[in-house]
Design a protein around this nucleic acid. Sequence first.
DNA 1: ATGCCGTGGAAACCACGA
Length: 259
Amino acid sequence: MKIATYNVNGVNGRLPVLLRWLKETSPDVACLQELKAPQENFPEQAILDAGYKAIWHGQKSWNGVAILAKDREITEVCRALPGDPEDEHSRYIEALVDGITIGCLYLPNGNPAPGPKFDYKLGWFERLKIHAAGLLAADKPVVLTGDYNVMPTELDVYKPERWVNDALFRPETREAFKTLVQQGWTDAIRKIYPTEVIYTFFDYFRDAYGRNAGLRIDHFLLSPHLEKRLLAAGVNRDVRGWEKTSDHAPVWIELKDDE
DNA sequence: ATGCCGTGGAAACCACGA
């Protein structure tokens, strides 16, 4: 089973690219972030026509997450990260697909840091850790994937020294990601490629893609059950070079079928 | 060091992103 994640940066503006990517790479499950569309403006029919069922949590202007599945049922578990009823951002949706719990997340950017946006990011991280610990304790196959807005190590940044004070790379942010992983999760890309430079995001300007001036901020965290089933992982880097494309590239994993 | 680009929504600019 192939599972992919893609920060589309506007699901309607990106629809031709999204449909082409689905057709060319044919993931069984696709987690989308940054829909930037209210609930009623999600392009459900076009996605159904492409062969995918979908659940989504939209929001006017910003955020928004979705889970798509081809030829499979999607059973929604929740559409908010527990722990703060005041949080109105659409940044988390969770579903069961083929017995796998799939958490699709869009972690806050957090800039400028320090400040209230950075506090919100760290608070969101703390809630994610609590939720993730509960998922591990349930001892089931789980994937937590999406745009984490974190470069975990210097290997994941084209010029680390320029990012040390940025909310995506500050010590507090890296520490939060590290302690999350240390609960018992596996970073799928790093399991397959421990030392390679791999990026999932390239700024739109100054030809960041052409210069390979990127960041690795979209991640797959796997529970122990799924770590054993991991066959392959990668980035659809060429998608970032398409016309009218997102500033993120899709990331994917391939899992062995359950016995 | 920087929003130089891009999106959405409102209103011919602004917020936001990483």
